[in-house]
């Protein structure tokens, strides 16, 4: 009888070990699902169109701001064209999923009540012409803001590249 009991002990240990492993696997799976479903950590992937368009708008804005020492009325066509491009990119960024940060940055740049890109155009319109020194200082502010947007989109590049490499390498 005693011998019989002893022979069952390794079996029991084996069963317990299997149960423990099973429990750990379930626990890790649940943890993985929780992490993967964490939406607040999701960021829109790098977007070539956004990067290119933002860079184009920056160059156009830079050239236009330089003309702010001349009459607003004389530049109305270029101003309207830039405004239209800004409206297009804002609408585009608004509808991209997990893109809250880029959209929030564009909202600031395109808000005429704030003092960056579109706010500058409004100030130009109110004054018709602006002084060279003011234009230089304002341009530095606007270009700095636009660089932040471009740099942020560029940062996303690494994420999508890593994802792509992961797929290629079968990870």
């Amino acid at each position: 009888m005693k011998q019989f009991k002893c022979s069952r002990i390794p079996n029991k240990i084996n069963m317990m070990s299997k149960k423990m492993k099973y429990f750990q696997v379930v626990l890790l799976t649940v943890f993985t699902i929780i992490i993967m479903s964490c939406n607040s950590l999701k960021t829109a992937s790098y977007d070539q169109y956004s990067y290119q368009k933002t860079t184009e708008i920056k160059v156009d804005a830079s050239n236009l701001i330089d003309k702010a020492t001349t009459s607003y009325v004389d530049n109305i066509e270029a101003i309207e064209s830039l405004n239209l491009e800004i409206q297009k990119i804002v609408a585009y960024e608004k509808n991209k999923p997990n893109n809250e940060i880029t959209y929030a940055m564009w909202k600031i740049l395109s808000d005429s009540e704030r003092n960056l890109l579109v706010g500058f155009l409004k100030y130009w319109k109110e004054n018709d012409t602006l002084s060279q020194l003011f234009v230089t200082e304002a341009k530095t502010q606007i270009m700095e803001a636009m660089d932040l947007l471009i740099k942020y989109e560029g940062k996303k590049d690494k994420v999508s590249k890593d994802k792509l490499m992961g797929i290629i390498n079968g990870n």
């Binding site: 003092n115 706010g119 003011f134």
Partner: peptide, 28 residues
């Protein structure tokens, strides 16, 4: 006044950029 206000808006942009970069790092 315009420039002072633009600095406030620029700092807001910087804060958003910082938050976005942290989010990317957390995503990694």
């Amino acid at each position: 006044k315009w420039l002072i206000k633009s600095q406030k808006d620029l700092l807001l942009m910087k804060a958003l950029h910082k938050a976005g970069v942290s989010k990317i790092s957390l995503g990694h």
